[in-house]
Write a protein that binds this DNA or RNA. Structure first.
Lengths: 242, 242
DNA sequence: ACTAGGATACTTGTATACAAGTATTATAAA
DNA sequence: TTTATAATACTTGTATACAAGTATCCTAGT
């Protein structure tokens, strides 16, 4: 497989990243986007040849992706698992689990600071929409949720977040790029949901928070299937089943 | 630092493990036990010299320990974080989070199989007590909870478990070794709590489950401080404050 | 005495070499 | 034709070499 295909991960996010990190991010995107199909067996040597790097950063990347449940390390080669509907739902479960836990802590502390911070991020998201920059929008979206989580200062919840964050980031990135081209008016709703989330935190309204959290998920999940289909058609022609 | 100190991690659990895994497990135990104090700066070269292996398995170990929040990888060296009270409580949070989630799924499915399996494990735990084998007991204890979690077939919950499991394992291991020497009759209560847990799953009694989960935590947590003190005195003499 | 600058001894990240083990394939014998 | 065996081409795991960057310490100059 020659390297004639373009890179999926935003290069400007990798300005100071190591080769290992670059490989990790790019491989992750290729797996989640479906460019590398699930079931594929990856070999360290082959990947090293494809990426034109040594096995060291490749090994590093595979370890990370395995910890994210995107691949499964076996005796001979790494088997690509990828993200199917089941996995997407599971990630949703985890995110719901994390953020509801976080919310329970948030209602006990002063949230003025974080509300202000979230408002700023939301403004940034609006600007990203205005200038039609899906990558910037995705970055701010992920940052939005990370900011909320970081507030409660819980290192082991943060650990969980750090494990799901890259996958979520990739998922949102792909979804947003797709929608900037087709369903541009979706973004008004997304912004509104985030506004609702901020309000929930500000007023410490538990029900409102759950509601906006679910809606926010629907925003991503609803269009994921479209994404797959387009990606799959792009990569292997037709056959949209199985 | 010459290697005149004995190994903390059960060697028989490492029969087919790679050098990297051995280093990971041993380093984890040394950090959690306090033999390596928090704040210590670890260097790859020094560790490689101490363990008499190359830097490759050391690097692997440090990456894993960093993902478990036991160390923090920085520019020059890895800073040991370790487990203080705060971290222990956080791990407890995560475990409560996971297992309550799991329970909500369990009540919706047939639990005959898992109840039987758990009963078997509990029998094994009793045997381990009878023959005063703290390592075997700890193994079965961890297996008990893993079995519960595995039942719901949720790869991303499993991912979280896989991240906290090694830390919990080490914690339980150290705690149990300590208690086999001093508070032998604690085990009757532990067994009883596990019996309660099984019953909760069998009868799908949510309250009972929460109750036994909390008690089970108290079993571990209650004695953790003793453990620290003994370990700290063992490693650096006196001074039990700060 | 004190500061500036450079040599030195670290650090990590990547590439490469080697060892040991496993799947595959081809060949030879029944 | 089928089966057993041996050679080969993989695989991963570990060790080592090298490059680039950073902290430290020592020296020289003021």
């Amino acid at each position: 497989m020659t390297e004639s295909t373009e890179l999926l991960y935003p290069q400007k996010w990798l300005s100071k990243a190591s080769t290992g990190d670059r490989v990790t991010c790019e491989l992750r995107m290729q797996i989640i986007s479906g460019r590398i199909e699930s079931g594929t067996i990856l070999s360290e040597n082959k990947l090293a040849a494809d990426f034109e790097v040594s096995r060291s950063p490749i090994r590093e990347a595979l370890k990370v992706l395995a910890s994210e449940n995107l691949i499964r390390l076996e005796r001979m080669g790494a088997v690509v698992i990828g993200l199917k509907e089941k996995e997407i739902e599971e990630i949703y479960d985890v995110r719901l689990l994390i953020e509801t836990f976080v919310f329970e802590r948030l209602v006990k502390i002063d949230t003025k600071g974080v509300v202000r911070e979230l408002s700023k991020i939301l403004e940034m998201m609006k600007v990203a929409i205005k200038y039609q920059d899906p990558d910037e929008f995705s970055y701010q979206d992920v940052l939005f949720h990370e900011t909320i989580i970081r507030t409660i200062n819980h290192s082991y919840i943060m650990m969980i977040w750090n494990n799901v964050k890259p996958v979520m980031e990739a998922l949102i990135l792909l979804s947003m790029r797709n929608r900037f081209e087709e369903k541009y008016d979706d973004f008004a709703r997304i912004v509104k949901n985030h506004q609702l989330y901020i309000e929930a935190i500000d007023t410490k309204n538990r029900d409102l928070m759950i509601q906006s959290l679910h809606q926010n998920f629907d925003d991503v999940q609803g269009k994921v299937e479209d994404l797959w289909l387009s990606q799959q058609m792009l990569s292997k022609g037709v056959d949209p089943e199985k």
